[in-house]
Amino acid sequence: MIGRLMTMTAHPGKGDQLAGVLLRVAESLHGFPGCEIYLISQDTADPDTVHVTEVWRDEASAQAALAAPPHADGPDPADVLALLSSSPHRTDLTVLGGVGLPTVGGQP
């Protein structure tokens, strides 16, 4: 399994709007093959900072989600980009396990 932490900063006062668009992205990924977790969080101290925590079965699943056309009622990537004041920061992770995840590498 792989993971990603994405940190995004919205234009001033647009954090709630950014979080809302990302929650719509999360809804569109419900049931997407290989998507284990797609969690949207807003920074309590700075509501214009929004975090996305992703867990994917493998890199191919994550890439397939990026390549998939947006749902007719879902947001377009341009909708997210228009709300950002700077480029997102991405941290790649090796997922070891935890509550809510299937068994990883033979570990509970």
Rank of each mutant, 00 (worst) to 15 (best):
L18E: 00
L83Y: 03
S61V: 01
R24S: 06
D58P: 12
G98H: 11
V80T: 14
M6Y: 09
L66I: 06
T44I: 13
L29Y: 03
S87K: 11
E27Y: 14
H89N: 04
V104L: 07
T9Q: 09
V95T: 15
G98T: 08
A19Y: 03
P33S: 08
V95I: 15
P75D: 13
S61N: 01
R57Y: 04
D79E: 06
D48G: 09
G13F: 07
M1V: 15
A26N: 06
D16H: 12
P102M: 05
M6V: 15
D92V: 15
L83P: 02
T9C: 03
I2P: 02
D73V: 14
G97N: 04
G34L: 00
L39C: 11
Q42K: 15
F32R: 11
I40L: 07
V95C: 08
D79T: 03
I2L: 11
A68G: 10
G74H: 10
W56A: 11
G15K: 04
V55T: 02
Q17V: 07
A65K: 01
L39A: 13
R4Y: 14
V21F: 03
G34S: 06
L84I: 02
L83V: 07
L81Q: 07
L81Y: 01
G31L: 10
G13P: 10
M8R: 04
T53F: 11
D43Y: 00
S85H: 02
L22N: 05
G3H: 08
L101H: 10
D58W: 09
L66R: 15
R90Y: 05
A64G: 03
P70Y: 02
D79S: 06
V55N: 02
G3Y: 13
Q63I: 03
G31T: 13
A65P: 03
E36V: 12
F32G: 01
P102Q: 05
A78F: 01
E36N: 13
